[in-house]
Design a protein around this nucleic acid. Sequence first.
DNA 1: ACGGAAAAAGTCAAAGCTGTTTGAAACCGG
DNA 2: CCGGTTTCAAACAGCTTTGACTTTTTCCGT
Lengths: 224, 224
Amino acid sequence: MPRRTAPGRPGGADGKDATWQAQKSAATRNQIIEAAIDCLVKVGYARTTTTRIASTAGLSRGAMLHHFPTKLDIVKAAVEALHAKRLKAFRKSIVAAPPAGRGRVHQAVQAYWQHVRHRLFVAFFELSVAARTDPELDAVLRPAQAAFDEAWIQTAREAFPEWQGDPEAFDLALHLSRYLLEGMSVSFLTHEDPERGERVLEYLEDLLRNLRPTGNGQRRLRSN
Amino acid sequence: MPRRTAPGRPGGADGKDATWQAQKSAATRNQIIEAAIDCLVKVGYARTTTTRIASTAGLSRGAMLHHFPTKLDIVKAAVEALHAKRLKAFRKSIVAAPPAGRGRVHQAVQAYWQHVRHRLFVAFFELSVAARTDPELDAVLRPAQAAFDEAWIQTAREAFPEWQGDPEAFDLALHLSRYLLEGMSVSFLTHEDPERGERVLEYLEDLLRNLRPTGNGQRRLRSN
DNA sequence: ACGGAAAAAGTCAAAGCTGTTTGAAACCGG
DNA sequence: CCGGTTTCAAACAGCTTTGACTTTTTCCGT
């Protein structure tokens, strides 16, 4: 019977305090994961090499490879950590919304806008783009993304019960906001100066206020 | 006095028919550029190597390097060709819009939607993402992108004179459409199945119809 | 203190990439 | 036909990356 906690398990997972060594191992793994996310943001996926990750984490490549035998193992762990952090941050910002009034939509839009401006989104975005042409990475990212999307939508449903009377409007509002804000964020990331988003953000808030169900299940905005 | 047209100049640029050799040279360069764009779409920027471009173009790497001494030279030529093609395609699709009525907004939205779904947009997108973390590439792409944006906006202004009574509304409509459709396209490129865009496209058309000036310079949609 | 396990570091081979150089083939005007 | 130019192809050197393997150091229970 092994006498020590296996590497990778967080300390205390078996109900007993982990040895210092096991805790140190878990801390090193976390350090590597943080370094990987850092590299994704700073130099993009293509230049996120095992050499650069190890250097950023402050240990040798050999040491790093002891914890994660292949680069894909690091990427898997980074994807998992990334999505957990993003979901946690999103939940936290959503609960800060006022219970009613104009400020509620404003806060929700600002929350998602900050979400897509965050370095964690940049890291995720780099992985997404690389996965388009990398089947191995796609096989890792796709299920994780599906799980994230499911949890994200569930979080939004719970946070905005007043919309559930009109699921169709809610679905439209959710996707409209997501595409628009992610599109704007990507534009600012790649080639635009982030100075012209405010008008669009205000307009989106107006749209969501008009889309919001009024109690009779009917949206106010009508086509010409 | 040189007796032959310099490589790189299109045949007939000096007012005389180019030699067959010069035409062949121009055709080879075009072949290389097409191959580079193909590689960007198929394998992404990071894997678009000189080896792969030459192979796709159907000639040796040495031959290719005779025409473009460095990889950045190929990229520069590809960026130029890409933007010229995208602008041409955009202009062509815009003039197909009906002169008035509901169909006008529909056609304009469909035109831009097809534009951002096209392989040329994918190639441009790959370059954009790579340029975020590559100063050398950014130095090439940024001015080209600025010129493209300028020409694109000018094309839109000329194609939609009825909006010019309300430049603010036009600017909002333009950016709203762009961010939304590019965000949706990027989502479909990277991780989503392209099956849920229709509701959003219809909604965008409604928004644009509501934003369109009615002659008294006032938008119909109002905030709560 | 000791032996075994784990963590850390160093080394190696293979593969691939880029830009440079050299050589061969094709083209063209005199 | 010939010499010069252009296009094409091959070879080379230098660099970087990855995963595997070996060695060293640290840690821990007996």
